[in-house]
Amino acid sequence: MTEPPPWPATPPAHGSVVLREFAETDVSLALELGEDPYVPLIGSLPAHPTRQEAEDWVRRQQTRHAEGRGFPFVITVDGTAVGTIGLWLRKLSEGIGILGYSVSPAHRRRGVATDALKAITGFAWTVPGVERIELCIEPWNRSSLRAAEKAGYRRERLLPAHQEIGGVARDMLLYVSP
């Protein structure tokens, strides 16, 4: 395994958002996100997780960087954990960084996702080898589409049956960073 790119010395931030590493205290955020009907379909967090499952999920996030998978961050506003965002490096050999994010239902529609995208995008451009940043969003997810566009991302194309979500191959809209 090659050495992963270094963790940022200064936490990425934009507007009211600061991105930080996962901590044991983020179990409550995992429990909250696990109650959302969509979030467990798009990642490794189980739906309606037990405390143990939430703790295990947080521990997995804490190992992702050392494994070379990417940079998982907790989105915070005034020190409160409100969501997650990650820069994933599975296509770094092609020069591509991939973003994914989720915001707790209680903190949506406040510009958090837009600020988090701006924060991680600024950081992503500093990661050696990243020449393009991609983000895939389901066409029905208007809030996420708006957040990406407000963060400066532009829609590139529709990717038919691109990603399996909840056991179904779903169309995704590919967005790219400016």
Score class of each variant (00 low, 15 high):
141 N>L: 10
30 A>G: 08
132 R>M: 05
95 G>R: 14
80 T>L: 10
33 L>F: 12
110 R>L: 15
160 P>T: 06
123 F>P: 00
80 T>K: 14
170 R>T: 01
28 S>Y: 10
68 G>R: 14
119 A>Q: 01
167 G>Q: 10
58 V>S: 06
167 G>R: 06
37 P>G: 05
86 G>D: 04
174 L>K: 00
132 R>H: 02
162 H>W: 14
46 P>V: 15
150 K>I: 06
91 K>S: 04
25 T>E: 02
17 V>E: 02
47 A>S: 08
105 P>R: 07
75 I>V: 14
177 S>K: 12
26 D>G: 03
108 R>G: 08
132 R>D: 03
113 A>I: 07
97 G>I: 04
37 P>C: 10
102 S>N: 13
89 L>A: 04
149 E>F: 07
26 D>A: 09
77 V>M: 07
18 V>W: 01
153 Y>W: 07
86 G>P: 01
96 I>K: 14
89 L>H: 03
17 V>S: 01
59 R>T: 07
38 Y>H: 09
9 A>M: 11
3 E>S: 02
68 G>D: 05
169 A>W: 15
124 A>Y: 11
48 H>N: 09
141 N>Y: 12
45 L>V: 15
82 V>F: 13
61 Q>F: 13
47 A>V: 13
174 L>G: 01
110 R>N: 10
162 H>S: 13
130 V>Y: 05
169 A>P: 00
8 P>K: 10
24 E>I: 12
63 T>Y: 11
3 E>Q: 07
79 G>C: 08
152 G>L: 04
